[in-house]
Amino acid sequence: MEMRAASPGRTHYVGAVEARTGKTTVHYVEHGSGRPAVILHGAGVDHRESEACFELAFAGATGIRRIYPDLPGMGRTPAPVEIRSAEDVLTVLLEFVEQVSGDEPSWLIGHSAGAHFALAMAERHPTRVAGLALVCPLLPGIRDVPEHRVVVGSGGLGDEEFRGYFVVQTPEMLERYERFVVPGMELADETAMERIGERWELAPGEGTPFDGPTLVVAGRLDSTVGYAAALDLADRYPHATAAVLDDTGHALPHERPELLRALIQDWLDRVSR
């Protein structure tokens, strides 16, 4: 790739960027210009899944610089042995956001495990976060997780991972899975993920809860994390909008893109105000 001039600590490429932190070098891509929005993907994939889903959700929005990093141990961001827990990953992400956003508060969005980190970042450093959006968040104390159930399709498409992830199993969803999910799965450092996964919980932040505009979106058929624990966040955060979407699961950003876009657009409006 062609290298471009960069500010200290950042290497710019055509289509890709890297930011050096104390523990690793974070690979990311970005789109647009303006206020920084950092979007974090889930476990076992890379930035391509969140990019494919949330670029649709940001369609039509202006003045927003969308930043999609690969989390440590996934995509092109390595996880050296010094990264041994979710707390270590959180340290990397906090340093990364400080580098890419400078003094300007960021908009944080996370899906699944990415939401777990986004929530902790907002709790630990609320003044650095302008708004928080959590989609199918991984949370401590998840409960009432439903059995996996297919609502569209015969259940015979794709591989086992696809059939266990999507509840809408159409050729279109299979194409999205093979294009945006599988490539990241193939790059995942399983040893690093297992090491970090053994210490995946993050301590809650001290002081008052994050009081900025918050969005929580969950799938009623999410057989990975459920939706009950996500709804608890509506009572904790004073400016939260919470939605549980029927007939969708953990792959909600793929399965209900138009409804997610409407919720994200409303959240963006609230943050802007």
Rank of each mutant, 00 (worst) to 15 (best):
A122P: 06
G141N: 12
H31S: 13
P137C: 15
G60R: 09
T170Y: 01
A203H: 06
P80Y: 13
E18I: 00
A113N: 07
P171M: 07
L108M: 07
T248G: 03
D70C: 08
R124M: 06
R35L: 10
I83A: 02
F58S: 02
R124V: 02
F180T: 03
P171K: 14
A243I: 02
L268F: 03
K23V: 00
R236H: 13
G22N: 12
L139H: 12
E95M: 13
D211A: 13
S50K: 03
E255T: 07
R256K: 11
T24I: 04
I64T: 14
E178P: 01
S154R: 14
L108T: 08
V26Q: 05
E51N: 12
T21M: 10
T77Q: 04
G164E: 10
M74D: 08
G32R: 01
G249P: 04
M74V: 00
D46V: 00
D46R: 07
D246A: 15
P80E: 10
P105E: 04
E98K: 08
E160T: 10
V167R: 00
E175Y: 05
V151T: 10
L252F: 09
S101G: 14
H12M: 15
I142A: 14
E160N: 03
P36V: 02
S106N: 00
R65K: 05
R176M: 14
R236F: 04
V225Q: 01
L40W: 03
P140N: 15
T224Y: 14
R270M: 11
H27W: 11
L90Q: 01
L202P: 01
P126L: 11
D269C: 15
A234W: 00
T127Y: 06
E95T: 13
L71G: 11
H12V: 15
P253G: 04
F210Q: 04
E55T: 15
R76S: 09
A59C: 12
E18P: 02
A229Q: 11
E198Q: 15
E2G: 13
A130Y: 03
D159W: 08
R270N: 08
R76G: 02
T62I: 06
P253I: 11
Y68M: 04
D269P: 04
G212M: 00
V100Q: 06
V97C: 07
V89D: 00
Y28D: 05
P69F: 08
F54I: 07
E186Q: 14
R66P: 04
S154H: 14
F96N: 05
D159N: 10
W107I: 15
